[in-house]
Design a protein around this nucleic acid. Structure first.
Lengths: 239, 239
DNA sequence: CGCGGTGTTGAGACCTGTCAAGACGTGTGG
DNA sequence: CCACACGTCTTGACAGGTCTCAACACCGCG
């Protein structure tokens, strides 16, 4: 299951056999959580980071007034909170969207990586910088894209990220979010998500049924989204 | 002027004398740029990172349609693109808001830091994670806060960040952004920025004149913004 | 069989954008 | 020293995208 993390890293850089073993040895144990749980609460002092082995999760920020905004959706192979290694506590919750299997990585072991494996350190550092790039792209969406463009953009992003870990079938993939959760990702109400989704269907760009998305016209969807994949840093390069 | 970077780092962790010297030796030279210039263009292959020694800059993302969104505002002491060390190219422009003096840090020297100074590496890693936390908070603003709350939030954020480097005078600070640039930060048009600014003035929360902001009622401003400073990670903690 | 979560639809309100025009102010060249 | 030009700020009228509130349909599951 940690394979997905390795796929993600190897897509961007070379990982030696020794580094791979180091990555595997990071995990102290795994845990399971049900869907719709707060896995990590904002503000808690943390001594370990988590890797999604199976399931979908998200970084969720709450306003006292009750509004909630996702900052990133996590797929298998993602660290949900590698950044907690240096931050020590999070400014957001980690929530499970589906039931999840998570690998637990003690910060003590990450510290050893920074002391002994400079290249692997840079690879992990890159990984948190990739999260930040996704945050920026979402900020651009939230600030400047229309509802329909935002939604189209998210479907494009997820297609590419799921392709990296082999979880797509052509232009189709499982999509477990409710419309309310989609709204929390896109800064929209669930009512407007519903209408926007219908609009994308009416335009024959996507199909959604049974918690599965099929992109019918990827080029057109990218056009609506003004999608440019460079923020996902999908090319391999020595870090 | 690199002092501001050290202030920022020391606010969050202890920096030894040796590390301080290492930080100082990172800088190969300095450059000056005029206001309103693209300092780094998205997509360029980069071999060095920049530190703002003097002036204000921003991370700006553009849409093909011409819309622009800032993802973060950079103050003296900020790395504008420490993340380019691992990303190698940026998904956004770095633009100068005012005339700037910038310190150039070759990536080769940062690589040596990762090989020889694990704690300083973690401090720098933290710094990029702090940028990501700011991106997340901005995403929350853009997704869920009203125009007036967003604006109030930005003024609160800048007050705290400027306090770290000693660039405030009470609750007052120089604020060089035009209303159009403020709109690019907040995901608003300049017209609506103008009206929102008037509303904050009418509520007697802030005063703006001569490119200087004075916060008249910080508690009320924080209330409007639903401001919670924990995302700025202002407490000192060993990383 | 009923229930809670999810999805759908409608009507109306409101926040923010668009377009357009003019005021202000500051630096520059004649 | 004046005139002008340009960027910036301000204002008004109107459009439109998204939200709110409410009701109802659907459906899987206990």
């Amino acid at each position: 299951m940690i394979e997905n993390l390795l796929k993600k890293l190897r897509r961007r850089d070379d990982i030696s056999a020794e580094e791979e073993q180091t990555v595997r040895n990071l995990v102290s144990h795994t845990v399971r959580v049900a869907a719709d749980k707060v896995v990590i609460r904002a503000g808690e002092l943390l001594k370990e980071s988590l890797i999604v082995l199976d399931g979908w999760a998200a970084r969720a920020k709450d306003l006292p007034s009750g509004q909630r905004q996702f900052a990133e959706i996590h797929l298998p192979g993602d660290f949900t909170d590698l950044h907690s290694f240096t931050l020590k506590r999070l400014d957001h919750d980690i929530v499970s969207i589906t039931p999840c299997v998570l690998a637990v990585v003690p910060h003590e072991r990450l510290k050893k990586v920074t002391e002994r494996f400079p290249h692997l350190t840079r690879v992990f550092w890159f990984s948190t910088n990739l999260d930040a790039a996704i945050h920026r792209e979402w900020a651009l969406s939230l600030g400047r894209r229309s509802a329909i463009a935002r939604m189209a953009h998210l479907f494009c992003e997820l297609l590419l990220r799921l392709e990296v870990i082999g979880m797509t079938n052509g232009h189709s993939y499982d999509f477990p979010l409710t419309q309310a959760e989609l709204g929390e990702s896109l800064g929209l109400t669930s009512v407007h998500v519903n209408r926007t989704l219908q609009e994308l269907r009416r335009m024959a760009l996507i199909e959604v049924e049974n918690r599965r998305v099929t992109i019918l016209d990827l080029d057109a969807l990218k056009g609506v989204a003004e999608f440019d994949p460079t923020y996902l840093y999908l090319e391999k390069r020595t870090r």
